[in-house]
Design a protein around this nucleic acid. Structure first.
Lengths: 145, 145
DNA sequence: TTTTTTGCAAAGATTTTGCACCTTA
DNA sequence: TAAGGTGCAAAATCTTTGCAAAAAA
């Protein structure tokens, strides 16, 4: 049986009563290739080359969000971007540079356990979380003329 | 000298070459009163009662964001909301219910220190961070017919 | 009095929709 | 062939702008 990420997408979509179509796969691949959060506008132009209509992108993102294929992330200046979530990508956190807007992934383990511990006994049922750290990346705080 | 939050806002705005106006104060108060992240649309209607124009809300949020009076937060379904940041509000994290969308603040200490530790030696200059935890609030996972 | 802010209403963008046609399962 | 998905273009929304009048410093 298929063990690829795309195979898993196919299974997941079908399980949810959705179809595995060429357009959906193209959108999925664009997100996988980008390997960082992508704003809708950027995603639209990325897949436009493959002939995917923008209405399809909006509709697909809504579905992907509903079935947990993607999640939204806030970039600098309040721009919303989309990225794949586990198991389509690794669980990680973000470092967002407030100067240049670059986003880099951070391994999540260290923070995760502290986070879990801090939620014990709250009566809240934790399903997932997002940690975004903001500051200056190396490039932006390195001395320059 | 003034020690109130509004006094501080006044000082901050002036320091940044911005003016302390009635409309800006109204918007600030609406956010303070809400005491939780407010989507733009909601903020617009809240202050509309006080006669604040919607263009003013957009312009003010942009300035408040620039001078760090507010920050953006992502609610369920990718809705962007605004909330005051320290020292205008306490530093905290969010718990967002994936069922009903309710947001509640969580004390931040426990996670913060783990977070700081995890960033040591990365070469990144941390300025702030956001931690959003998603799951089901008590109401939503309490047994019901 | 100088500089910024605001209102208004129009312009521009972004998203959503309806419906006929095409695909997947 | 039944249930979804997609394209298209219009409609509905949401945001931004220009400019003249009003307000802050």
């Amino acid at each position: 049986m298929e063990r690829t990420s795309e195979g898993h997408l196919k299974t997941l979509l079908r399980t949810q009563g959705l179809r595995f179509t060429p357009d959906r796969l193209r959108i999925f691949r664009a997100l996988a290739d980008a390997d960082k959060p992508v704003p809708v506008a950027a995603l639209i132009s990325m897949v436009a080359q493959d002939g995917v209509n923008q209405a399809t992108v909006y509709r697909t993102l809504e579905q992907f969000l509903a079935v947990q294929v993607v999640q939204t992330v806030l970039l600098k200046d309040g721009i919303v971007a989309y990225e794949l979530v586990p198991p389509f990508s690794s669980h990680h956190h973000h470092f967002i540079c407030l100067d240049c807007g670059a986003v880099q992934d951070l391994p999540a383990e260290r923070v995760d356990s502290a986070l879990d511990k801090s939620m014990e006994g709250t009566g809240l049922r934790v399903m997932t979380h997002k940690v975004d750290i903001y500051g200056q990346c190396e490039k932006c705080h390195t001395p320059s003329p």
